[in-house]
């Protein structure tokens, strides 16, 4: 009754709004984007190492393909780092999840290393660390996880929510 009265007044006088903000899109956090981006980094490393060195007429083709793979590796390493930073900064609470800080720092360092080098081991560690982050994330929601090989190259282990 009081609410209806206030709402009627609001339609006429437009009371000031007090914002109870969330980030936009509110509540939509999922580490899968980071996981896929990290897998893409390893995939690009594999394509780079498998690429024929290119002699004679193939030289231009080689450089074209190699530069595209490197560009994609750069882009996806940065994307993975960004996705992790968003979840870490906007979702995790420091007082409730104190161990996540070290893990995120490790991911950031590995994310830089996979850009600077074509070290596949660093790429695998990048994927594994983000898997660990995903596991911690789903745990906060009381959702169990399972580990399975990605059904596409590079077919590394990925942590999935067991919904």
């Amino acid at each position: 009754m009081i609410y209806q009265f206030l709402n009627t007044l609001d339609k006429k006088f437009h009371f000031e709004k007090a914002h109870a903000h969330c980030d936009i899109p509110c509540g939509i956090y999922d580490p899968s984007a980071a996981q896929i981006a990290a897998l893409t980094v390893v995939r690009m490393m594999d394509l780079m190492s498998d690429l024929d060195s290119g002699e004679g007429d193939n030289k231009a083709t080689y450089h074209n393909s190699m530069s595209r793979y490197i560009d994609s590796k750069e882009e996806h390493a940065e994307k993975a780092k960004l996705e992790i930073r968003i979840i870490w900064g906007d979702y995790f609470k420091k007082d409730k999840h104190p161990n996540v800080d070290d893990l995120v720092h490790k991911i950031m360092l590995l994310g830089s290393k996979v850009r600077q080098t074509a070290d596949r081991k660093a790429g695998e560690d990048f994927v594994a660390s983000i898997n660990e982050f995903a596991e911690a994330f789903w745990k906060t929601k009381d959702i169990k996880t399972k580990t399975a090989k990605a059904p596409y190259a590079p077919a590394l282990d990925v942590v999935y929510p067991d919904l």
Partner: peptide
């Protein structure tokens, strides 16, 4: 005293979108 309308759900379930507060 002032009357304000709540916009957003970050305070849910205590305060929800559309609630009024004094």
């Amino acid at each position: 005293l002032r009357l304000l309308k709540v916009n957003g759900d970050s305070m849910a379930p205590d305060l929800k979108e559309g609630d009024f507060v004094v």
